[in-house]
Amino acid sequence: MLSDPVLQIRNLSVEFSARKRTIRALRNIDLDIPRGGTVGVVGESGCGKSTLILSIMRLLAPNSKIVSGDIVFEDRSLFELTEREMQSVRGNEISMIFQDPLTSLNPVISVGQQLIDVQYRDSVAKKVKQQRAIDALSQVGIPDAEARLSSFPHQFSGGMRQRIAIAMTMIEEPILLIADEPTTALDATLEVQIIRELKELQKQSRCSILFVSHHLGVVADLCDYVVVMYAGEIVEQGPVRDLFYNVRHPYAQKLLECDPARIVRSAEKKFPTIPGDLPDLGNLPGGCIFSNRCHSAFDKCETHSPRRTEVSTGHSVSCHLY
């Protein structure tokens, strides 16, 4: 599909068991992340974005099970690694920024110590590690970094804490960075700054980024490849320009229409909605998963699952219309 991918996800399906029911959270996911590229994943909450990320990190809750598929990172299957080997991948080759900066740092350990702790693999002097921590903090724009090493997370604002989290990944110099809605919990003005920091980070370390968001504007700005997820499946994926200007899947179309930026620009100023509810992932209907909410569904949609069709180079969609 794309040349030299860092990470390849093939036919990944994940299930949860909850209250004697099986929730089929992810089904047949295929996704490549190109080296040095930025892939955006968009979709409503509950569409399986977080499950996808946690599958890559192998940090899924104990009640979940990988039913099929494989994730290949730098020519190694992540599912075949021992826990110990996986641990040396996390934070070293694959790093992650979480959604809520207010709760992702340990509240009783100083920020400096936490920045030093992530370097535990390096056998350099503590002084060196400390200097790295200071450099990283100044780089993400935290003033007076050296003095603030001994501060605790609650003494920083939310935006500052997200910068600290970015500084952490900066120190780790990962090959792949996963950012799980890193700006959702922040103000709009901070969002711009954080995105800028991420771009800067990528420029420096040439890492690949998997960026999860439901903010389409940010995705369009930051990413060069976009994946649209719905109810545990990928419905459309493609290069950012193709997808935004030539969107195919009815769900992806609706999603783009819902983007506030477009609504403000349009004449009607009316928020479109998608009628109906997400299908029950514990009891999936046959056919296309979006058929119950789709405005252009026809007979075949209720009975047959659509297969993935390539509509242009790198741009594919799963819909019977194409």
């Binding site: 979480f98 709760t103 740092l105």
Partner: peptide, 10 residues
């Protein structure tokens, strides 16, 4: 959350 964060950083 911070426990998962610490684990994610290996």
């Amino acid at each position: 959350n911070h426990v998962r964060h610490a684990r994610a950083h290996g």
